[in-house]
Design a protein around this nucleic acid. Structure first.
Length: 425
RNA sequence: GGAGAUGUCGCAUAGUUGGUCUAGUGCGCCACAUUGGAAAUGUGGUAUACCCGCAAGGGUAUCAAGGGUUCGAAUCCCUUCAUCUCCGCCA
């Protein structure tokens, strides 16, 4: 959420953000409610002050009855105003949670993902001197998956990897975690079960009505818990209600957790293969810093993911998401897409986001700056690596005619020194 | 899942027959004094959010959270949450 003071002072900037991002503009309603709320606060608070004064006189008064009566009378007046105040404040809070983060001036302006801008390409898609196989053929011929079997056991959009592919999955996770730890990230293995409030705090959803999550989030029946879609939401709450020291910033976390997505809006898309499933593992990069450090940290996070692409020896490109595609809570967003030979296209493997103070305001995560003033932290997040999706470009780009896969050099130590897997069937 | 205990201003604590508690004390921290410098000591200060105000300043709320009783709640009642101990179950 944004600071109400900022909205008060910069209504035009807020209106423009709503327009650029394609969200309903509630600015006028907010300002109206805000004015009324402040008016009611002024009235109720001065009446309360009056009542407190009378109340304090009662213990020592000789004739208590008139004072008690007076206090009661004021209490009744206050109650009426408070009822309206509560109501208006609720409405205001709900609307404040519907105001999008102001996008960066650097972000391209556009309506949806068709207007995203390619920032750069790194590496050249390999020219095969044979017909490359798609992920499903490679997984099949090497005995690395059993899609029908697993679907019959666990339902659609689930997966299991067997043998060397499972090893590869674990090796990639380990590789990325070790890389991030080497860059000062603290490894956190995160829970996947959480409270809905945790998800709200991340700012992916608008308003204060929990039912808006039902489409995207797996709720656990008969409990007040749900399955987390990403470790980001846990990491985002790690310092809620705390006051950090500026000298301790930035704080960097590498979260690892199973992630759960309903994928309700993706019916029919990516039904074949292991690109889009209900449960996957993800290493997530997360940073708390000062607003001044935010741009530098964004580049840091983005570069980390780019390095991972290069270590996995994948051709990739970096996208700048346009205002209409970046999402509700973001200042700016860069996607990193790897080359998928089977599709002849780049596809998203990670998404690097600057959130500004938007999440920290929801979680009440602050720091004391050099001058001793309280500030909200800025937060950023980026994928470290998401699996099994990342396996797809690895096996497709590094395949041989016999169906075997060359292991990227950096992964070889984690694969027992092997340079190649598969191709034996 | 069963039984019990606990939750106070950064930390540790005082406060439970409701009213000088707008929360005391110790430690920590900051400033000043003392000192050649430091330790020790002394004095003062030491939360956050919001409202009114140009400001100085004033006010409201917060003793885990929410609600209730009352003229008045840290103190009484209810609900929730968290922590600890024991039992049960279990990777």
């Amino acid at each position: 959420m944004l600071d109400i003071k900022f909205i008060r002072e910069n209504p035009d900037a807020v209106k423009r953000a709503c327009e650029l991002k394609g969200f309903t503009d509630y600015t006028d309603q907010i300002l109206e409610l805000d004015a009324r709320v402040r008016e009611l606060k002024t009235v109720t608070q001065s009446k309360t002050a009056e009542k407190n004064k009378i109340t304090r006189e009662i213990p020592t008064a000789t004739d208590k009855a008139p004072l008690i009566a007076a206090s009661k009378a004021i209490a009744n007046e206050i109650a009426n105003d408070m009822a309206e105040l509560d109501e208006k404040e609720k409405q205001l809070t709900d609307l404040l949670h519907r105001v999008p983060q102001i996008p960066s001036d650097a972000a391209p302006i556009g309506r949806d993902d068709t207007e995203n801008v390619e920032v750069r390409r790194v590496g050249t898609p390999r020219e095969f001197d044979f017909t490359p196989r798609p992920q499903w053929d490679l997984l099949e011929m090497n005995g690395w998956w059993k899609p029908e079997k697993i679907a019959s056991i666990c339902g659609t959009r689930t997966y299991a990897l067997f043998g060397e592919a499972a090893e590869l999955e674990l090796a990639i996770e380990t590789y990325v975690l070790q890389k991030l730890m080497g860059k000062g990230f603290t490894f956190v293995s995160c829970p996947s079960i959480t409270k809905p409030q945790t998800i709200f705090n991340a700012g992916h959803f608008m308003g204060t009505d929990p039912s808006v999550m039902a489409n995207d989030v797996f709720m656990l029946t008969d409990t007040d818990r749900c399955l987390a879609g990403t470790a980001e939401i846990i990491l985002n709450c790690l310092h809620s209600d705390e006051v950090l020291n500026e000298k301790d910033l930035p704080i960097k976390y590498a979260g690892f957790s199973p992630c759960f997505r309903k994928e309700a809006g993706a019916a029919g898309r990516d039904t074949r293969g292991i690109v889009r499933i209900h449960q996957f593992n993800k290493v997530e990069q997360y940073i708390y810093c000062t607003p001044e450090q935010s741009d530098e940290m964004h580049e840091h996070l983005l570069n980390n993911l780019c390095e991972v692409m290069e270590d996995l020896e994948l051709p990739y490109r970096v996208i700048a998401a346009c205002t209409g595609d970046m999402g509700f809570n973001k200042v700016k967003m860069n996607d990193v897409e790897a080359w998928f030979p089977s599709e002849g296209a780049y596809r998203e493997l990670g998404s690097c986001s600057s959130i500004g103070q938007f999440q920290a305001r929801r979680t009440n995560t602050r720091y004391r700056d050099k001058n001793g003033n309280m500030q909200f932290c800025a937060t950023l997040n980026n994928t470290g690596i998401a699996l099994p999706r990342a396996i797809v470009p690895v096996i497709e780009n590094h395949q041989n005619p016999d169906g075997s896969i060359n292991i990227p050099k950096k992964l070889q130590p984690l694969m027992g020194g092997r340079t190649k897997i598969g191709g034996k069937h």
